[in-house]
Design a binder for these strands. Structure first.
Lengths: 198, 198
DNA sequence: GTCTATATGGTGATAGAC
DNA sequence: GTCTATCACCATATAGAC
């Protein structure tokens, strides 16, 4: 018997439902292929409301990507502990993010970055300025080596995400996280603190 | 003064021009986003001819992907030499393929695999049955470890290709190949012949 | 605030004239 | 063999009725 005396300006959950549906759709199909109609459909909302709430498809994407993961909070956790195991901790944290609900947004970003230039730019800038820069500037490596080390780490991390969550190549796709940590951790460690060739 | 007495059944180069344009378009935009109209446009050919020659967009893609790279010929080159440097040789050969004209096809396959399920399957089967299987069965490793080692190699290789040729993250995107060989070779080597955790 | 209807344009595929 | 014209469909975005 919910008596509704005051006015109810639309269901309050529609905006969140829209964001949820958008995250899933972008994750599964990428930016271009995910359609506003389909997103509104799974959210059981009229497609026109998307424009009413977010203005455009681009802004819907940005709103959906604005996920609750704070690199500034995560990075210290990775750096805590001995320096020789930072690689393993980075892989473990990385896998944790992808296997969590937030992973949908990450998958959306990765999938979209392949077919869409401005989302690729988004991914590039997020990786470099938000993650790698933060990690590396706390590891007292030569600043001149920072970009190369960072992008090497990115090749392995993005490749791992691609194979595990996008292309789904077995057995990596369903491997135990700790197996991957044990195998890939040393790789990251060497890229971060190992010797460089030049 | 070309005298044309016999009949000329259309320009003979149209089919090749079409394949070339298709390879570039698929490489730049992926399977879904590359349009038959645009491909025919850059090839300066009528869009309807695509269907006349190839029947469908799928078959055009397959024809464009049928590139002149023979894993059965390349793999022995990778395996020749001492076992401890097979990782470096694999990275070097891999980079060579991507920087060659054939790289366009590889890029098309990778880009398409992200947004399209059946091209992803194509990539998966090509990687596993044509490349990794061949490499590993000549390295006398435990056959039970073969899938895990193979897919770990794939994570690093595909990630390298993604960052260098798709997302174009610097400085990996324009790094000297031998720098990448020196840094990533040992990673591949460890995945192939190093110890496993389990 | 919500949603129907539509404007505008791009897609793969096909039928049939030359 | 080649290409014009068209079909049927889907997209984003917007104007305006309720």
């Amino acid at each position: 018997m919910t008596r509704r005396t005051g006015r109810r300006p639309g269901k309050p959950g529609t905006r969140e439902a829209l964001l949820d549906a958008a995250r899933t759709a972008f994750a599964e199909r990428g930016f271009d292929a995910a359609s506003i109609r389909a997103i509104a459909g799974t959210a059981e909302v009229d497609p026109a409301l998307v424009h009413h709430y977010f203005g455009s498809k681009d802004q819907l994407f940005l709103a959906a990507m604005n996920f609750p993961v704070d690199p500034g909070q995560l990075v210290p956790k990775v750096l805590a502990g001995d320096r020789d195991a930072v690689g393993e901790r980075l892989v473990r944290t990385f896998l944790g993010i992808w296997d969590s609900p937030v992973g949908g947004a990450a998958q959306a970003l990765l999938r979209s970055a392949v077919s869409n230039e401005w989302t690729a730019r988004l991914l590039r800038e997020f990786v470099t300025t938000q993650v790698l820069r933060r990690v590396l500037e706390n590891l007292d490596v030569d600043p001149a080596e920072l970009p190369l080390r960072g992008s090497l780490v990115a090749t392995q991390m993005i490749g791992l995400a691609m194979m595990r969550h996008v292309v789904r190549l077995e057995p990596v796709a369903s491997a135990d996280p700790e197996t991957l940590v044990a195998m890939i951790g040393p790789t990251i460690q060497r890229y971060l603190t190992g010797p460089l060739p030049s």
